[in-house]
Design a protein around this nucleic acid. Structure first.
Lengths: 216, 216
DNA sequence: AGGTGTATAGGTAGAAGTACCTATGCGATT
DNA sequence: AATCGCATAGGTACTTCTACCTATACACCT
């Protein structure tokens, strides 16, 4: 095709820039530009708006993160790929939050970067398989809606039972009937729970119950 | 190490079974067994409990899914890897729900399956990068807590504003003050929202607001 | 011109929840 | 034996929410 894909490679190691250029030169018709630090990368992204921006994380002036963050905030239309040695979960999570489309480990095969670019150009995410574990975990956390130790440990078993029933949208009366106790007992439990958790207000307890029911 | 890893290959294509056996034979000390359909696979998993179970999806008697589902339900200690030609999202989602640890596309390099086995043996997930898009989307859905058309579209802008404030744990009075209207107005909006959404009860509206605040 | 939808506001009755008390019985700890 | 935590239950006063109504004013569409 006559279509040329503009790729910006931002990495402070010349070796990597040259290597990447070599790899990309073979396969497709890429128009390649380079940046040697975060500052230059940001300038070139703003001016040339490459289709794909490959960012190293550690760079002078701005880190790859800061560059990606600005790209994200300024809604610049370029697909960002992180090329990194770091297999750290926090990094990955932050990356996902700022709309990074690709996350490739340097230690992996060179073929991966071309696959990544192709995938990203198709509008899809590409993650090195080693990374997918993080995404799975991220998923799990979302599913179990943050199992932070919010103060659940402060509650007695009966209080937790009440909380669990609360999350099923039962009223105090219904919970009382369910357990065969007085509504006053349930109300007292509710009060005590609120006190223990340091929350107050009409909705606070229900909100808490809904958020933490899965962890009870 | 003297430790031998037991691997079960379940695929109805002999070619693939032999190919896999070849690939695995080279690298590590695997003890390989084969199954030619879902029924045999399940029997061998139950009796021999391999460390890793590689399942094709389309197989006679039981599909790979059905086998994995039974493995999951019976809490059999084996890491399941799906080896498939299908890049379909539903398949993937179902797989994640039944605890599959690996998901590798047949079209990919053979080296990927060994990487996958190693990763899975380390207790981590391995997904072919082409698949990660699905996981990302799964994530998104969880994050925006199901942006199903729950009925939000039925609401007027004012009603949505009220809902949004509700999710911040404001009472009707506080919302009224916030917008400088009567509490009755807010209460009416609440009533109308409940009617439109077809919900009732003390907690229902707050629950709805909390769940959908992000989409408003 | 008339209908429809929306935002506004009010009324009333009742249900539900909150806040802050007291009090009893039981089992475990000291 | 005395104390403490917990589950139980009750009282009282207050706030909040719900479920029904009515009603006015405005904008938009036919």
């Amino acid at each position: 095709m006559g279509e040329v894909t503009k790729v910006l490679i931002a990495d402070d190691h010349e070796l990597i820039r040259k290597g990447l250029r070599q790899v990309l030169k073979l396969d497709n018709n890429f128009e390649i530009d380079e940046a040697i630090d975060g500052k230059e990368a940001l300038e070139k992204v703003r001016n040339a708006t490459p289709d794909v921006t490959i960012l190293d994380i550690q760079m002078p002036f701005y880190t790859g993160f800061e560059v990606a963050e600005r790209i994200h905030n300024e809604s610049i239309q370029t697909s960002v790929i992180f090329l990194t040695m770091h297999r750290e979960e926090q990094l990955f999570n932050r990356a996902m939050d700022i709309g990074v489309m690709g996350f490739v480990l340097k230690e992996n095969t060179v073929s991966e970067i071309t696959r990544c670019i192709e995938t990203v150009l198709a509008g899809k995410h590409y993650l090195s398989p080693e990374i997918s574990e993080f995404l799975v975990r991220r998923n799990m956390k979302l599913m179990s809606n943050a199992s932070e130790k919010t103060g659940l440990s402060l509650l007695t078993t009966t209080e937790k039972k009440v909380l669990k029933q609360l999350a099923t949208m039962k009223t105090s009366q219904e919970i009382a009937d369910y357990y065969g106790v007085s509504i006053k007992t349930v109300q007292n439990h509710r009060s005590n729970i609120c006190t223990k958790l340091g929350i107050s207000g009409h909705h606070a307890l229900l909100k808490f119950a809904l958020e933490h029911a899965k962890n009870i």
